[in-house]
Amino acid sequence: MRGNVWTPRTTEREEDPVDEEAERERIEIGLLLEGLFRLYGYDFRHYAYPTLRRRIWHRLYGERLQTVSELQARVMHDRNCMERLVSDLVIHVTEMFRDPSLFAAFRQKVVPLLRNLPSIRIWHAGCSTGEEVYSMAILLYEEGLYDRTTLYATDMNEGVLQRAEQGVYPLKKMREYTKNYIHAGGKDEFSRYYKAAEDSASFQSFLRKNIVFAQHNLVTDRSFNEFHVIFCRNVLIYFDSELQAKVHDLMYESLCRAGVFVLGDKETITFTKHAAYYEILDPQEKMYCKIK
């Protein structure tokens, strides 16, 4: 119109540089994770994004890089860098008889269910460095069940599996582990189960004889047996809802009827499609019995 100065009408706000940078970073992380999966077989694509992002940046600082794209390039061409990144993405936090009340409840509520079985199969999914597995071996030994039990200890990380199979831990940890063992209802002297040498402690060979260590990826691999008990503790908290549902399917498929499923204290089956197929064995310790 004459006499007026035309100015363009803005119907949308200008692009926020912060939003653009965040989107760029999310794309970079997506490409990094896709590369890890396609080249090395590690699938972190459905892990919880905030946790992934934090740990990826931790590795960026460790490698003295500036961008996720730089990290991707290094990971694609340097297997050692890939292994460092994978170790960062999968934090291994475990200890002997961790959460002692769980093991005490297991003695009271699950052991009686196992006594009538001619053979027992127990799966520790995401076993990390093996402390939980050896804890269960000790418990079953004290309950007279170990000789007819096979413990399957699996993890996606080959390095931690090798450490688990060795069964050697820092000697300084034994005092703390002894306290856990006592609170878990231990029936003997904890020191009888390991040999001390300088600054390390190695568990007795009779505890290892019925443990099968194997690499298994909960994200990509399928069921490999039918189990009477499955421990999958503090693993699902790192996954998004889609991947949690997939792992719950795997656990349900792998558990025999009347089998026991044990989750971590922040995990639940309540909102899964399999919830109606379990009964709660112990709500506090997140132990469930499969009924269908």
Rank of each mutant, 00 (worst) to 15 (best):
I120M: 02
L140Y: 04
W123R: 10
Y146P: 00
N157P: 12
M156Q: 11
G159F: 10
G126V: 02
L140I: 05
V160E: 03
Y152N: 10
E132N: 10
N157D: 15
A137V: 03
S135I: 11
A137C: 07
H124G: 07
D155A: 10
G144H: 07
G144R: 06
I138M: 08
G144E: 05
Y141V: 11
V133G: 05
I138L: 04
G130N: 04
T154Y: 07
R148D: 11
L139I: 10
D147I: 10
R148N: 13
D147K: 15
I120P: 00
L151I: 15
E132A: 10
R148T: 09
Y146V: 00
T150L: 14
D147N: 15
D147E: 15
D155F: 02
G144K: 05
W123T: 08
V160Q: 04
G144P: 07
H124Y: 11
M156K: 14
W123M: 10
E142D: 10
R121S: 14
R121K: 13
I122D: 01
G130M: 03
T150M: 14
V160P: 01
M156T: 14
L139C: 11
D147R: 15
L139Q: 03
T149Q: 09
Y146N: 01
V160F: 06
I120A: 00
E142P: 08
T149C: 15
A153G: 12
G126H: 05
C127E: 07
M136N: 05
S135P: 08
N157K: 14
E143S: 06
L140A: 04
Y152M: 13
I122L: 03
S135K: 07
T154H: 13
H124Q: 12
D155V: 03
A137Y: 01
Y141A: 14
Y146K: 00
M156N: 13
I138P: 02
R148C: 08
E142T: 10
E132W: 04
C127N: 07
A125V: 03
V160D: 02
Y134L: 11
T154V: 15
L140T: 02
Y134C: 05
C127Q: 06
G130A: 09
M136E: 03
C127W: 02
E158C: 15
N157L: 13
R148A: 09
T150P: 11
E132F: 08
E142Y: 12
Y141R: 15
L140H: 03
Y146S: 00
N157E: 13
T150N: 11
T149Y: 07
C127S: 14
